[in-house]
């Protein structure tokens, strides 16, 4: 643990500091958007968006190599793919009368498959594992700035749309009757979800990112009677998971993304167990 703090303060080693700053910043977006996603019960849609991101990363690597497009970083590819996936999935779920889940799983797997194919055809060694499960060694200064920009954008929109989003999540029909453009807010929520996912991909990866979406909000849900309380608590929890996860994984050289998610999972189980014990006790 002291190793962790020494490295954190060592001016010559930046990646751990970047990871911690990125994780703490992203936690705010995760707390806010994750709470919307959990109360609206669309975590599986968030999952599909996250997996489609691999397609964008693969495409970005492939095209930047083949056509020398240096602006097309994996991060840019991830943002574009996430937004595209959010809009496609959103429109499908608004307009598809039936079998919405089939369409969503089809997009889920095709996105991943496309990513793996692009990566295979990109010259040089690319480790898909680092995108799937995160790799804090890969966070660059530029990534950090992208995260700061996206994070402030998501947090601002998430807070400003609070009263409308709450109504759309709680009772969409009534919100529509009051003249709220519910489809717009639904698509906005999916786009904000998409951007939030991108924030954490470097740290926990595509596969594990959904855990940080749903677990802090699920734990917070047990302690909050207002949506904003749920957001505040899950932001703090998410910050706690990221910090302890990084600290615990650093010494024994464990994969940090997996450690963060494991701590989140354990705390969820503990809360559930404590709840059950208390109920039986009463």
């Amino acid at each position: 643990m002291t190793d962790f703090f020494n490295t954190l303060l060592d001016p010559s080693i930046s990646f751990l500091r970047y990871a911690l700053i990125a994780g703490l910043l992203a936690s705010v977006a995760f707390g806010i958007i994750g709470s919307y996603v959990v109360v609206k019960r669309i975590t599986y849609i968030a999952g599909a968006i996250a997996h489609c991101v691999l397609g964008g990363i693969g495409a970005a690597l492939f095209f930047s190599q083949h056509y020398g497009l240096s602006w097309l970083t994996p991060m840019t590819g991830a943002v574009l793919a996430a937004l595209a996936a959010a809009l496609v999935i959103g429109l499908v779920s608004i307009h598809a009368q039936e079998r919405e889940d089939s369409v969503i799983s089809a997009l889920w797997v095709s996105g991943m498959a496309a990513g793996i194919m692009f990566m295979a055809k990109t010259p040089g060694y690319i480790d898909p594992m680092s995108y799937l499960f995160g790799n804090i060694l890969m966070i660059s200064r530029q990534d950090l700035w992208t995260i700061v920009a996206l994070d402030s954008c998501v947090v601002t929109l998430g807070i400003l749309s609070y009263s409308k989003m709450l109504a759309v999540c709680f009772d969409e029909e009534f919100a529509r009757l009051r003249g709220v453009h519910t489809k717009f807010y639904y698509l906005l929520l999916l786009c904000l979800t998409a951007l939030t996912i991108v924030l954490m991909i470097r740290i926990v990866g595509i596969v594990l990112v959904i855990a940080l979406f749903s677990l802090p909000a699920a734990v917070a849900g047990h302690f909050s009677s207002r949506l904003w309380q749920m957001m505040a608590i899950s932001t703090l929890l998410s910050m706690f998971y990221v910090t302890t996860g990084l600290a615990v994984s650093y010494g024994p050289n464990l994969p940090s993304g997996a450690t963060i998610v494991m701590i989140a999972g354990l705390s969820y189980l503990l809360v559930m167990a404590a709840k059950m014990l208390r109920r039986n006790h009463n």
């Binding site: 109504a167 919100a175 009051r178």
Partner: peptide
């Protein structure tokens, strides 16, 4: 919160 939804506007 619920009752306030009556005050929503576009």
């Amino acid at each position: 919160d619920v009752a306030l939804m009556g005050r929503l506007s576009s």
